[in-house]
């Protein structure tokens, strides 16, 4: 497999972890209670830890001079390949949990397949991540149920978040050209095959949470090709601030 293709494939997975980790870390110190604050930070730490493993591998593939930080902080917006879902803002706790839940279900299915990748490093990173992401999915599913089947207010707020974020779920199952090549060589996961299982799991949890599944026929996409939402630029200005202001320094 061509190196550049593999690197792009890695970005497609790792950028989701980075951007969602960044969003979650914005919450640290502002959670609805201490326990939830600590739990959200835990998930951020897991995701950023996974990001580092992927980026260190991509840096290794890229050549001697490239570091994980070059990849994390010094690409242009168009070069980040995360899905639109994970860059959506922390509008309120219902949005945070729904975004997390929509991503976690996909993430676990992805890693369960990726652990069988012919690329040993990717397989090992996936294997290590499964335990963490299983916990994330349990956490976010539990909260979806609490919020959906909690009070009238929480039900309404969560239904709104579900309705609003639903349009970003289909992009998870799109394949880029790099993805297709990676799948062909047994390195990548054919995410389109995860779709049915995904909507089944999501549907079951939403039903238990007394929330309805939106009947949406149109979906947003673009993140995987580097076409992001307006939120992304602001997120990157924060993320890249130090590296852009003080280039070529060690921290």
């Amino acid at each position: 497999m061509k190196k550049e293709n593999l690197i792009q494939y890695i970005y497609g997975i790792a950028d989701n972890a980075l951007i969602l980790g960044q969003r979650l870390s914005e919450l640290c110190g502002h959670g609805p209670n201490l326990e939830t604050d600590i739990a959200c930070t835990n998930m951020a730490l897991d995701l950023l830890g996974q990001t580092r493993s992927y980026y260190q591998y991509a840096a290794h593939l890229s050549g001697e001079k490239v570091t994980e930080d070059d990849i994390a902080f010094l690409r242009t917006e168009r070069q980040y390949k995360n899905v639109l879902l994970v860059e959506q803002p922390n509008t309120n706790f219902a949005y945070i949990i729904t975004r997390q839940f929509f991503y976690d279900v996909f993430h676990l299915l992805l890693l369960q397949e990726l652990q069988n990748s012919k690329d040993e490093t990717l397989a090992a990173i996936a294997k290590k991540g499964i335990k963490e992401v299983s916990y994330h999915q349990r956490f976010s599913s539990d909260w979806i149920k609490r919020l959906g089947d909690g009070t009238e207010v929480s039900h309404q707020k969560t239904q709104e978040a579900v309705n609003d974020l639903w349009k970003f779920t289909d992009e998870l199952f799109q394949l880029t050209e790099e993805d297709k090549n990676a799948v062909e060589l047994g390195v990548g996961v054919d995410v389109s095959l995860l779709k049915e299982k995904y909507y089944q799991i999501v549907g079951e949890v939403l039903e238990e949470a007394t929330l309805s599944v939106p009947e949406l026929k149109w979906f947003r996409k673009g993140g995987k090709e580097g076409i992001h939402s307006e939120h992304m630029g602001y997120l990157l200005s924060d993320l890249q601030y130090m590296q852009r202001t003080y280039p070529n320094m060690k921290w």
């Binding site: 604050d37 930070t41 980026y55 930080d69 130090m242």
Partner: peptide
């Protein structure tokens, strides 16, 4: 946290602030 200069520092700071919690 959102502006830490490297991945290593970001993770360490996040873990530190979590310790305070």
């Amino acid at each position: 946290i959102s502006r830490a200069p490297s991945m290593r520092r970001k993770v360490a700071l996040l873990a530190k602030v979590q310790d305070e919690a």
